[in-house]
Design a protein around this nucleic acid. Sequence first.
DNA 1: TGCTTTTTGCTGCAGTGCAACATAAATATA
DNA 2: TATATTTATGTTGCACTGCAGCAAAAAGCA
Lengths: 159, 159
Amino acid sequence: MARAIFPAPDHDHDRCASSAIAHAETLCAARAQRLTPIRRQVLEALLASHKPLGAYEIIDHLAGDTRPAPITVYRALDFLRDNGLDHRIESRNAFVACVHNHAGEDLVVFLICERCGAVGEAPGGGVAEALKSSSRAAGFAPKSPLIEIAGICSHCRER
Amino acid sequence: MARAIFPAPDHDHDRCASSAIAHAETLCAARAQRLTPIRRQVLEALLASHKPLGAYEIIDHLAGDTRPAPITVYRALDFLRDNGLDHRIESRNAFVACVHNHAGEDLVVFLICERCGAVGEAPGGGVAEALKSSSRAAGFAPKSPLIEIAGICSHCRER
DNA sequence: TGCTTTTTGCTGCAGTGCAACATAAATATA
DNA sequence: TATATTTATGTTGCACTGCAGCAAAAAGCA
């Protein structure tokens, strides 16, 4: 199981972003999915930071000569999510690129720093099991647990 | 610790609702908070079911002679939430009355039935601890974990 | 080349959520 | 009781969210 990691402000972000793009290309090629320019641009916009972006922020980011319509961005985000390349942060109505700091289908716990806005992905691991057994005790057949934790990241706390 | 309970479709809902109102009255009186007509009506609207309601659904519910503005409803919802009388279901952008199936400040796990739409509140208990220690391992100081689980409730599964 | 599927563009709309200011009601203070 | 202060509600307006439905364009295939 991967360790919980919060993106350090001084990490090599260019490398982090380009490897995520490379991963997206490989994955789409393998699945015969098309990583079109728009989809790539949306992913790049998300990868520009580890902070969740709202739909309109993404539009602003893409707005060069032509400003894409909201639906265009939402469709790209849907595509990316279908392929596990981004996540939706429900408590923020916003999106982050998936940095795959978690195993395939596993539960992901999002750590959201209230100060710097960055989002880390921690592996769910044991929590997922505890949750599932606890909800089954209520006769509930769980599908997709969603866990988002707001707080202060270590980098912000040190300052 | 309370047991995880999903509201049964055949429970005595009138009693369930009126006791929630009574609790709200007691609590507001004790805190010198004012449970005004609007706030009460919004709470009653939420208590009409265990399904999360969107802001406009609440407006529809309240619309008699005068249709309240969205902001009016949002303010009432804020008040109720400040006093622990309702919860916001982030993944649905909707609200449910709190049925206090959990201890005071404890983490609440929301079980959301994808079929009937009802929402149950399960006590977080051990999960909260596991989450906190896991996120602390990432150097993260957690504040308010948010857990929402979609799935099928026992009553829907039996049918 | 023609056909089919996928993607993108366009228009429009219902819902979310709140800021900023004005008014009214309740509470506290003189 | 009159006045000031706080609290709640009303009003207007707007930015953002999210997607349906249809048309056009691009990509892939026969």
